[in-house]
């Protein structure tokens, strides 16, 4: 007999109700039960950050959260960033700055960066951006394009004097 729970949550504004086994991770639930496969699993032990999503606006490793813990929560994933084919400013900056190659870590970095950029004191200081982006691992880019992209968006979203 499986230990299952009926939960409800919102993902990118879409309401979902589902039955989930208590041991099922939020990452597996998003990917395989709800079809949000943009959230990737790179290590399943909380280090690489490829599965970073926003859970009630906080960045979390979806591999370290159980699906049942998201009951009643608002989840944001990479699928919620673009407006149809129109990329968000952050997504466009990643492309412009070549902040992705294979693309596997990219959703995690985008969600991490979204959380960082939502902080009122986010600045375009490359060192603080590097420090923030050090939460996640990328094996392709050497991080330079990622850091540049986040700096670009920090500058455009928080023009000098506005913070």
């Amino acid at each position: 007999m499986k230990d299952v729970h009926l939960i409800s949550l919102s993902v990118n504004g879409n309401e979902h109700e589902l039955v989930v086994e208590s041991r099922r991770t939020l990452a597996d639930m998003l990917r395989h039960d709800l079809g949000y496969t943009g959230t990737h699993l790179g290590c399943e032990h909380g280090i690489c950050g490829a599965c970073t999503i926003l859970l009630d606006d906080q960045p979390v490793r979806a591999c370290l959260v159980f699906g049942v813990q998201a009951d009643g929560c608002e989840v944001r994933t990479v699928e919620g960033l673009a407006d149809g084919d129109q990329l968000s400013d952050l997504q466009q900056a990643f492309s412009d700055r070549h902040g992705l190659q294979c693309g596997f870590c990219t959703p995690g970095f985008l969600m991490l960066a979204e959380a960082y950029l939502s902080e009122a004191d986010s600045s375009a200081d490359p060192e603080s951006v590097r420090e923030a982006m050090a939460s996640n691992l990328c094996r392709c880019t050497g991080y330079q394009g990622i850091v540049e992209a986040v700096c670009d968006v920090a500058r455009s979203r928080h023009p000098a004097g506005s913070t």
Partner: peptide, 15 residues
């Protein structure tokens, strides 16, 4: 390649 990767609609094997 960038658009689909950035939208999370790339298709990796576990997808």
């Amino acid at each position: 390649e960038d658009g689909r990767m950035l939208r999370g609609s790339g298709r990796f094997v576990d997808d």
